[in-house]
């Protein structure tokens, strides 16, 4: 689209018009609030969703809607927009090689630094989407880590999208989400439902803390400290260089000395920040905060 072109929700009277300038302003606003940059090739996707929200909020035009976004104290509409802009495609045991690495290598390294049995071991999954990743981690720990009973394990799970967090807490999944999960785990950690879906057992759901977190917002992240392992997979690809570096800073502060961070297969911490040391294990490359650093 060239400069000055406009987008109409529909032809005829009452059409909602969003100009390129409007889109630029919105993208800058979203970036400042979340660190997420919308690529130009996704503009059509963005326009359709904004037009929908202008209508839902009964605003006369985009300008009124944008004003509402800016000045609404509770931030509910901003949350709605964030929910619409984020992608939540995932399933159980996705990119399993990193969970294998957690079980086979990372936890051995982490547990050596713990002082005694019964110490807390903290894992943070962010973004956790609808819960497939943290539940996969939990099941893998319970089934495969020989030292699982020696520690009290906290699994914290966060996402910027409030709607997916609600689904994660409920923990109901269809066949597509479970297609890689061994049947013995399904039978042990899920209960079948009459609609053909499966629900995570209440013990497991009750063991996990799901919270709404925007990792670009210090007000959300300042309490997240002393983690041993962080999973942050396929999120930073949506950030620009500055936001990636700031996110790396935040993760560095959130980790204990010697703690690990696991990124998505196409992401490299070495290209974002020099704070972490790459560690090559048999199953995966991960990144570590130096054990000597505070």
């Amino acid at each position: 689209m060239t400069e000055g072109q406009q987008t109409n929700s529909a032809s005829g009277e009452g059409a909602i018009i969003i100009t390129d300038d409007d889109l630029e302003k919105f993208c800058e606003f979203l970036y400042r609030k979340t660190g997420i940059r919308i690529e130009s090739k996704k503009r059509y996707f963005l326009e359709r969703r904004l037009i929908e929200r202008v209508g839902v909020m009964k605003c006369a035009n985009f300008r009124d809607y944008f004003s509402l976004l800016h000045f609404e104290d509770a931030g509910r509409e901003l949350q709605q927009v964030v929910n619409l802009m984020t992608i939540n495609e995932t399933y159980f045991f996705r990119e399993m090689y990193q969970i294998d690495c957690l079980i086979n290598s990372i936890l051995a390294d982490v547990s050596r630094r713990k002082r005694r049995q019964g110490d807390r071991l903290k894992i943070w999954s962010v973004p956790c989407s609808t819960g497939e990743e943290p539940y996969s981690i939990a099941i893998s720990l319970l089934e495969r880590w020989p030292l699982v009973d020696d520690f009290e394990i906290e699994i914290h799970d966060s996402d910027i999208d409030s709607s997916v967090l609600e689904r994660a807490k409920v923990g109901v999944y269809d066949e597509r989400a479970l297609h890689l999960l061994p049947m013995m785990y399904r039978q042990k950690y899920f209960t079948p439902r009459s609609d053909g879906n499966w629900q995570i057992i209440s013990d497991l759901r009750g063991s996990i803390d799901f919270t709404l977190v925007n990792i670009s917002n210090l007000s959300h992240t300042w309490q997240y400290r002393d983690f041993d392992v962080i999973f942050c997979r396929n999120l930073l690809i949506y950030f620009d260089d500055v936001s990636r570096r700031q996110a790396a800073e935040m993760f560095y502060e959130a980790l204990s000395p010697g703690g690990f961070i696991c990124l998505g297969h196409s992401e490299s911490m070495s290209r974002m920040s020099s704070l972490f040391v790459p560690r090559k294990f048999a199953d995966a490359m991960v990144y570590q905060k130096s054990p000597q650093r505070l």
Partner: peptide, 18 residues
Amino acid sequence: MTLVRPVEPTDISLSPPP
């Protein structure tokens, strides 16, 4: 089960110290 809920669940409504 050895998975435990955090002792103090995170509350993001709390502001960081000024």
